[in-house]
Design a protein around this nucleic acid. Structure first.
Lengths: 218, 218
DNA sequence: CGACGTAAGGTTGGATCCAATATACAGTCG
DNA sequence: CGACTGTATATTGGATCCAACCTTACGTCG
C-alpha cells in the first residue's frame, strides 16, 4: 500500500480511521506529542491535519487547550441527517435531469461493488463502496459546493455507519433499497429517486436511534 | 484594538480581509514567505490559517504547489446562493417556531445597527452588522451544523457583498426589506419570513449578475 | 530551429527547538 | 476546614532550520 504523497494526508487518513474506530474516543483530548510519536511523524503535519478535521467538525479546538474528539449527540445526529435530506434531495433532483448513460454505468458498477463486498463479508469495503455509490448518484448534478458539504456530513457519521452495517438485517435491506434507487436513477425519475433516498436515510436514522437508546440503557 | 489570543487567529482575520479587499487576487499564488513577513509572523501559523480557509473553499491547495486564492465563477455564485436558499429557508422556518422575546430584541438591535452604519456611510460596519442581523434571525433554530455551513457560504461571497453595498440604491432597498423581515420574525410567521428572505437574496443575486456581466464586458 | 534532458534555484513540506499559556498541586491565610 | 495564591510541570503555540519537490532556464542533440 503506497503511502500518500504528503505526510499530512497520511496523518489525516490515520486520524479519520482512529476516530471512526473509537481508538480516539469522543471528548478525549488529543495529545499531539504522543499521537505524533505513534504515527512516526512530527507535530507539524499532525496539527495541519487537525485543523482540517476541526473545520469539518470532527474535532473541537480550544486555544491553548488543544483538540478533543467531537462528541456527536443525538440532536447532532438528527440535525446532520436533516441537512443531508435538504442537500441530497436537491442534488438528486438536479442529477436526474442531467445524468447520461456513462453516469448510469458508474452507478451500476458501484451498486455491484457494494453487493460484492456484502457477500464477502467485507464491512470496511462495503462502507467505502456504499459511499461511492451514493456520491455517484449525486455527482451528475455538478454542484461542487454541495458535494463538499455532503461529504463533510457523511464523514461525521461514519462511526455510526459502521455500527449500522454490523447487523445482517440492515445490510440486506440496504442492498434491496439500492436496487430500487438505481432503477429510479436510470429512469431519470427525480421525484421517485429523491423519495427513495429519503426513505433509505430514514431507515438508517430509525436503526441508529434504537442503537443509541440501547447503548444509553446498557 | 486588541490582537486576538493566538497568532493564527490574527493571521486568519488578516487573510480574510486581504481576500475580501482583493489585496490577494483570485488565482494568485500565495507566497508563504512573503505573506508571513508582511504580517510579521512565522510560516507555521500562516499555514494553519490557510488550512482553515482551504476547508472553507476560500483558497485551493495543491500539494507541493501551494495555495491560490479561489476563483468564484458565476456558476459557483449561483450554487452558493441556491444552497443558502435551502439551508436558510429551513433555519428560518424552525427559528420562527422557537424564537422568544429576547431573540426579537437581539434582531431588532442588529436592525438598528445596520441602519445606523448605513446612515454613517460606514460600509465595513454595515456589512458586519448585516451579517449579525441575518444570523440573529437564524440562531434561534438552534442548528449548529447548519449555522456552520451557512457561515462558510457567507464567507465565500463576502467580496461580492462589498460590491453590492457600494450602490446607494441597493443599500436603501436592503434597509426597507430588513424592516419587513423583522415584522415577519416578530409575528413568528415562518412562511412569510422565509419568503421575504428568499426575495432578499434574489435581489442580491440579480444585482450581482448585472455587475458581473458589466465587469466581463468592461 | 525545435524539442528534450538536465541542472540550478526557489518554494513548499516537515522536523526540531524555544516560548507562552493552562493545569494541578501544595502551602498558607481567613 | 475551605478557599485562594503561588509555583512547578506538562502541553500547546510559534520560530527557525533542513529536506523534498516543483519550476524554469539553459544547453545539447536531432
Amino acid at each position: 500500500m503506497p503511502r500518500p504523497p504528503t505526510t499530512q494526508q497520511f496523518v489525516l487518513d490515520e486520524l479519520r480511521r482512529a476516530i471512526l474506530s473509537r481508538e480516539l474516543a469522543p471528548n478525549q483530548p488529543i495529545r499531539q506529542d504522543s499521537v505524533a510519536h505513534e504515527l512516526g511523524v512530527s507535530r507539524v503535519p499532525l496539527r495541519e491535519a487537525l485543523k482540517t478535521l476541526e473545520a469539518e467538525g470532527q474535532v473541537v479546538y480550544r486555544p491553548h487547550r488543544g483538540y478533543t474528539v467531537a462528541e456527536l449527540s443525538l440532536a447532532d445526529l438528527l440535525e446532520v441527517y436533516r441537512l443531508r435530506e435538504l442537500l441530497e434531495t436537491e442534488a438528486s433532483l438536479v442529477s436526474a435531469t442531467k445524468a447520461d448513460e456513462r453516469d448510469s454505468a458508474t452507478v451500476r458498477a458501484e451498486l455491484r461493488a457494494v453487493a460484492e463486498a456484502a457477500a464477502n463479508g467485507d464491512l470496511v469495503e462495503m462502507i467505502a463502496a456504499n459511499r461511492r455509490f451514493h456520491f455517484a448518484i449525486l455527482e451528475p448534478a455538478d454542484m461542487p459546493w454541495l458535494m463538499r458539504m455532503v461529504r463533510t456530513l457523511w464523514d461525521t457519521t461514519d462511526a455510526y455507519r459502521a455500527v449500522y452495517y454490523n447487523a445482517p438485517a440492515n445490510r440486506s435491506r440496504v442492498l434491496e433499497e439500492h436496487e430500487a434507487i438505481v432503477r429510479a436513477f436510470e429512469a431519470r425519475d427525480g421525484a421517485e429517486l429523491a423519495g427513495l433516498l429519503q426513505q433509505h436515510r430514514e431507515h438508517a436514522v430509525a436503526a441508529l436511534r434504537a442503537t443509541l437508546a440501547d447503548t444509553a440503557n446498557g
